[in-house]
Amino acid sequence: MKFIEYATPNAGKIKQNDININEVVKQHVAYLEQKNAEGLLVFAGTTTDGAGGLIVYDVSDEATRNRVVQEDPLYLPEVIDIAIHPFETFEDITSR
Rank of each mutant, 00 (worst) to 15 (best):
R67H: 08
F3D: 03
L41I: 05
K26W: 08
T8H: 03
A30Y: 02
H85I: 08
I19A: 07
P73A: 02
I55T: 15
D72V: 02
E38W: 08
E91W: 04
F90Y: 12
L54A: 14
N10D: 08
Q34L: 10
A44K: 08
N10A: 04
T46F: 14
G39S: 13
E71M: 14
L32Q: 06
I80T: 02
G39F: 10
Q34N: 09
N22L: 12
N22S: 14
G39M: 12
Q70R: 11
F3Y: 03
P86W: 03
K2D: 02
K35N: 04
Q27I: 07
P86Y: 05
F3C: 05
E91R: 07
Y31I: 12
E88F: 14
M1H: 02
I55E: 13
T64E: 15
G53W: 07
I93Q: 04
I14W: 02
V79I: 05
A51M: 09
V68E: 11
I55F: 15
Y31F: 15
V79K: 03
K13V: 05
I4T: 15
V68S: 13
N10E: 06
T8K: 05
L40P: 03
L74G: 04
K15V: 07
T46G: 13
E88Q: 14
T48L: 12
E62I: 10
V56Q: 10
T47E: 04
M1G: 04
E5N: 15
I80Y: 01
I55W: 14
E78Y: 05
A30S: 07
E5G: 15
T64M: 11
P86N: 09
F90M: 13
T64W: 01
M1K: 02
Q34H: 08
F90N: 11
S60A: 15
I80L: 03
L54P: 12
S60E: 15
N20R: 00
P77R: 05
K15R: 06
I84A: 04
E23Y: 09
V56A: 11
N22K: 13
E62Y: 09
Q34I: 07
T48G: 13
A83K: 10
S60R: 13
V42A: 04
E5Y: 13
L40M: 08
F43N: 09
V42I: 09
D18F: 00
D18E: 06
G53P: 07
E71T: 14
Y6S: 10
G53D: 07
R96Q: 12
T94F: 12
F87I: 01
D49L: 06
G53S: 11
L74E: 00
T48E: 12
P86T: 07
V59Q: 06
K26V: 11
M1I: 00
A11I: 01
V69P: 01
V29F: 07
T46K: 11
V68A: 14
D58W: 06
V69I: 10
T64F: 01
N66E: 03
G52E: 01
A63C: 10
N66P: 00
A44E: 09
R65I: 12
V42K: 09
I82A: 05
A11W: 03
I55K: 13
I4H: 09
V24S: 06
V56G: 09
A7S: 13
P86V: 05
